[in-house]
Design a protein around this nucleic acid. Structure first.
Lengths: 146, 146
DNA sequence: ATTTAAAAAGACATCGTTGTCTTTTGTGAG
DNA sequence: CTCACAAAAGACAACGATGTCTTTTTAAAT
């Protein structure tokens, strides 16, 4: 477990955007970083990555910002994780052995395969949109750290 | 998933020691780092940590080295992980939110709780000794990267 | 056209993990 | 008692993730 901060920022930003997207068109990084208490410029890099990969739309200039698009909420968490931090979590050996696989297993391989598969299927089957609960106040609260 | 390199080194070293402990008393870092292709001095720090916490015994000086003790193989993987890399894997929120818990869950909390518990119980219930299979050649092979 | 305000981009700083190297300490061998 | 050789300890380097700051690009507002 324990996903990267970048992923945390990406996911929470998207959920926040979903939360306010019925009243706002473009959401600025400034607003997101304020609400989520996240570093402005670092979030910018994360959002840029999302935009470049079509997970959200972005426009520059005055009144610019980010928008959800038709793909955003149907994206599985697994894809978002891979996009942000690569596929090591899903594809590499638990203790980092290069040649570890079913035929050539590391000492932990068989012990963890069940938990590992459970985790993979959880992230593969859960879409971002599945995390959007109707209670908006509750949802907003869940995005915030302190 | 994806445990630290330090943990990988610790676990593989202990298994290797179990593998040769019927013919050798003290096993030196030099031998372990040679066999496992692991950095000598970095492994030293990891082993020191294990010794300080009673997971293995160590003696200095000529003919010095490390030995398994009566606790070693009965130690649950969870304890070894906590010893080496702390308890964040088991206790902290998946996306790092400070106040995340059952009453105040992050957006992912309920989605991942099942996979998370499966992982925790796997590491809690598996002892290091459970990884020692009878086929020694196979076991040795499983410790080696390239 | 000029100004304003936003994302995009890039240079650099910080921090934890990992890795290297050197020095100190301790213990058995001779 | 001295030597050899091991762990222990500590200083420092490399690297990736994270974070800060500045400059560039872009588009709307005026």
């Amino acid at each position: 477990m324990i996903l990267s901060k970048s992923f945390s920022y990406a996911l929470r930003s998207i959920i926040y955007m979903a939360l306010v997207s019925d009243t706002k068109r473009n959401i600025q990084i400034q607003e997101i970083s304020d609400v989520l208490s996240v570093p402005h410029h670092f979030l910018g890099k994360v959002m840029k990555r999302l935009a470049k990969n079509g997970v959200v739309d972005s426009t520059k200039g005055r009144t610019g910002g980010f928008m959800l698009n038709k793909h955003t909420l149907s994206l599985p968490l697994k894809e978002l994780i891979i996009l942000i931090e690569g596929d090591a979590l899903f594809n590499s050996c638990v203790i980092g052995l290069k040649k570890c696989n079913e035929k050539n297993p590391c000492p932990l391989h068989h012990q963890v395969v069940e938990a590992r598969n459970k985790m993979i299927s959880t992230y593969a089957e859960t879409k971002i949109g599945d995390l959007i609960i109707p209670d908006k106040a509750e949802l907003l609260k869940s995005l915030i750290v302190a």
